[in-house]
Design a protein around this nucleic acid. Structure first.
Lengths: 148, 148
DNA sequence: CGGCATCCGAGTAGATACTG
DNA sequence: CAGTATCTACTCGGATGCCG
């Protein structure tokens, strides 16, 4: 049996808060919990929206108002042409970002967030801030766990 | 060229807000932007924390205070033994959840969120609420896009 | 330059059977 | 009951080449 003690002084979570959280979940799960949600839109949307690459793309487009394909590729370090263009396509399709093509020679294409994308970006930033804040903690949890 | 008009009346996003967001991102990306972050802890942590299954597991454990292996498996519809036990292991290792084993016969194991997990759950709920709210919109964006 | 088509390899998920 | 072991299937990502 393991027991991980967190070294940080985390904002305490009261029973009250847990109850409030449970209520929200109940609301969300209400229709989702009934079995036979073979196809669950929430899951579907979440799957894309929380994809590792999608998150990075959206975050970078929040930072740099517009980015061209290759610039984006450099920022989102490690992504391949294929995956990047795939993600860009579905992210555009879902309405997160816009694609402006300038028929110059050589061609120029600029990607940017839509207002919808910005609205999502805000949520994403909250999440990322949390992750940034605690990532060291998590990494060290992981190490301690392995030792046990 | 495409142009998607969103049917919903989204909270408007001011330039001001965009600037604030950009500042936050600058802070986050500051150390991350310098190339040679071959290994980026943020990415690493995000990859797990934003995993499709992990999210569902954490959300369900937020709803039901404790769940046993098979109960969880039923809730997180569609997950296999293997993947579930893998995820549970890493989520425990990272400190999101706790595992209590009762050496009875038959054996009983209960999973629950740690305080750390609850802290993450709160962020996750914000995200999920957003997704829930807009998923219909997104699905319809997607359909319209395909038609174009 | 942007980005799609193709191919290929590695890793991951799923199904099933089995064990403490 | 709570997993592990094994095997297969398949998806996904990376590399490359080509075209507008």
């Amino acid at each position: 049996m393991y027991s991980i003690t967190l070294g940080i002084d985390m904002e305490t979570i009261t029973e009250n808060q847990k109850v409030r959280v449970a209520k929200k979940l109940k609301k969300m799960f209400g229709h989702m919990d009934r079995r036979q949600m073979e196809y669950c839109p929430i899951r579907d949307v979440m799957a894309l929206a929380s994809d590792k690459w999608s998150i990075l793309i959206i975050l970078y487009l929040g930072y740099y108002p517009v980015l061209r394909f290759n610039a984006l590729k450099k920022k989102v370090y490690g992504i391949s042409n294929k995956v990047l263009s795939e993600r860009l396509k579905v992210l555009e399709a879902d309405g997160y970002l816009s694609r402006k093509m300038f028929p110059e020679v050589p061609i120029r294409v600029e990607y940017g967030l839509t207002d919808f994308g910005h609205s999502y970006l805000r949520k994403l930033i909250d999440l990322s801030e949390w992750v940034t804040e605690y990532s060291d903690q998590i990494i060290s949890n992981r190490k301690n766990f392995k030792k046990a």
